[in-house]
């Protein structure tokens, strides 16, 4: 089981803040994006690379970063603090 988190505009568009997800084996970020995109048109559009950065266990991740059981994976738009 991994935990997916969504923030900012992405959280509102997907109408989802937190989503537990079963994974049978380790996957990379790119495969996870694809798996989520299959959930519907909104997910497809808003989980694209341009719209959603990704952090694995609170550290910024790349498309090839591996995700293991128990990990926390957060998707969010480019940051706008300060």
């Amino acid at each position: 089981m991994i935990t997916l988190l969504f923030f900012g505009r992405l959280r509102e568009l997907l109408d989802c803040q937190r989503l537990p997800l079963e994974i049978t084996s380790a996957v990379d970020v790119a495969s996870l994006r694809q798996q989520l995109a299959d959930k519907g048109p909104h997910w497809q559009e808003f989980l694209s690379l341009q719209h959603a950065l990704v952090a694995v266990n609170q550290t910024m991740a790349q498309e090839q970063t591996m995700i293991n059981d128990g990990d926390e994976v957060a998707f969010f738009p480019p940051v706008t603090g300060g």
Partner: peptide, 29 residues
């Protein structure tokens, strides 16, 4: 400040004329 603006996970939403608008990242940052 320069790194905070481009790396720290904060997101701003503004109230503009009664509309709630999420801000886009600023290229100058």
């Amino acid at each position: 400040m320069d790194y905070l603006k481009s790396e720290a996970p904060f997101w701003k939403k503004e109230s503009q004329h009664g509309q709630q608008v999420w801000l886009d990242a600023n290229p100058t940052d």
